[in-house]
């Protein structure tokens, strides 16, 4: 063993990166806790992390957090399925029909940066005070990145792969399913990931705004009661939804692309 290996820091000697990430998070919360305790940060604006942790039990027992968690999760799931079907389908159609792409791409891109959440009153009128308002808001707001990334993935397929398909005399359908789609899959997944982020933000945001539904409504109610530790605990559950979605998506991607 050389001197260089002897003096390597701990994280180079096999400490899992996840542990380092977790350690950094714990260090961050400890710092915040300390700054609150010594009065640098106002505890009426940011609650001490220890209070947030302490409020988990209360939020779970008294606020039906699991029911709300499942409601937000299912809204995101339905929006995610719609996004995948319509968004990927839209991207495929725009790639297939050049006129459609030329006519719509700019508008779709513009829609991606538009604050669609502000249209919630319109969605309330159309879908009523139901979970479908949240689902459709999440779906519409998250559609552009899925369409654009699908289009980007399909258009970016290496020309030589397309030529291999042509040299084997593939039909347009075979060319799509056997070459274009698998080649575009990594970029399509990036689009779906982005779409889910947009969907979750919008769903929780609308739940908060109209005070209806799952975790967004809970955050609203707790904030209205000025229960700051409870509010932050509920936000942690929103993050949990996000983590669950990303873990599932990663598993699906790994299953579809085992060579990556």
């Amino acid at each position: 063993m050389t001197d260089a290996t002897l003096t390597r820091p701990a994280f180079r000697r096999g400490v899992p990166p996840q542990l380092i990430g977790l350690g950094a998070l714990v260090a961050f919360f400890l710092t915040v806790e300390l700054l609150i305790q010594i009065g640098v940060i106002n505890r009426f604006i940011v609650p001490p992390p220890s209070d947030v942790i302490g409020s988990f039990g209360r939020v779970i027992v008294e606020e039906d957090v699991f029911g709300r968690f499942l409601l937000t999760l299912s809204e995101c799931l339905i929006a995610g399925v719609l996004l995948t079907v319509v968004g990927v389908g839209g991207g495929v159609l725009m790639h297939r029909y050049r006129l459609l792409q030329q006519a719509c791409e700019t508008w779709v891109a513009a829609m991606a940066s538009a604050p669609i959440v502000l249209m919630y009153p319109l969605f309330l009128v159309i879908f009523g005070r139901s979970m479908w308002t949240m689902i459709m808001m999440g779906f519409v707001a998250a559609l552009p990145p899925v369409i654009l990334k699908t289009l980007e993935g399909l258009s970016g397929t290496r020309k030589v792969l397309v030529n291999v398909g042509r040299s084997f005399n593939l039909t347009p359908s075979q060319q799509f399913w056997k070459i274009l789609f698998p080649a575009a899959l990594p970029t399509i997944f990036v689009g779906i990931r982005l779409g889910l982020i947009f969907a979750l933000i919008n769903i929780v945001g609308v739940e908060f705004l109209i005070n209806f539904g799952g975790l967004g409504q809970l955050i609203n109610e707790l904030a209205e009661r000025y229960d700051l530790p409870g509010t932050y605990a509920a936000i942690c559950f929103v993050i949990l939804v996000s983590i669950l979605f990303f873990m599932t998506l990663e598993k699906i991607e790994r299953w579809l692309r085992p060579f990556d």
Binding site: R158, V160, L161, N163, V164, R166, S167, F168, N169, I179, P182, A183, L185, R257, F259
Partner: peptide
């Protein structure tokens, strides 16, 4: 007048399907 099954092509660029 187009790609033909009698002709098999090997391209200059890397053309295997990575998936």
């Amino acid at each position: 007048s187009g790609p033909h099954q009698s002709i098999g092509m090997v391209f200059q660029e890397e053309s295997t399907f990575p998936w």
